[in-house]
Design a binder for these strands. Sequence first.
DNA 1: AAGAAACGCAACCGCCTTGCT
DNA 2: TAGCAAGGCGGTTGCGTTTCT
Length: 227
Amino acid sequence: MGGVAWSEEEDHLLKKCIERYGEGKWHRVPVLAGLNRCRKSCRLRWLNYLRPNIKRGSFAEEEVNLIIKLHGLLGSKIDEFRWSLIAGRLPGRTANDVKNYWNCHLSKKLVNAPRIEHQTVINMEKFLTPHPPNIATTTGPTKPTDSDHTSKDNQLKTEEKAIVWTPLSDIEVHRWCQDLVNGEDGHQGVEEPGRFADHQFGQFDDGGSSSKWDWDDSIFDIDLWTL
DNA sequence: AAGAAACGCAACCGCCTTGCT
DNA sequence: TAGCAAGGCGGTTGCGTTTCT
């Protein structure tokens, strides 16, 4: 392993500690649990291995497809990937799981599949229009923009378009994500959020505890401006 | 059957963000 | 406002397992 493996005894102590005192206050966990581990190790062990409803084993096809699409959405034009956000769309999966799966499986496979990435770029350019957009935003924070932008600045080179951030309307965000998940460049109108959520996201079996979640929650908690 | 190579994944590290004083 | 501590995250490492030759 990458370090000293956790013993069953350590797992038991950590689990008991979390069950008794709850998550958080990780700096106290090693002391409370009587573990000779740092706070980070305890937190990681809990989040990635001991936490209830952790789904183990191979990824389902739907999960893989979603990872690919969300990775394209969240990572293709941005310097950093957000594994936690992607993992948040996959009940029972951890960011570490998704990251490992991507690094071991998908990153290699997709090297020879530029079409997917290209399509994602198209999708992003379609909705991330150059500043100023004159689109009223009703969702979330707005990316700080340079108020000194001139009309000359707006004449962007093609390769710069996708990194110029502008607010999206609710409808555009829905349409954007619908395209990505459906894998279709051409959208078929704007669906109401509930219907979309049921069709695309409410299918995972995580043990029956929370097999469905609200579309609004699932998409608007993505902080589009901090990706 | 044995050694090499590839794979899978748990764990660690360093950096960034956030909240508190 | 600055400094510190803790939480959180992505990238990387390293070792056990599996597959290949």
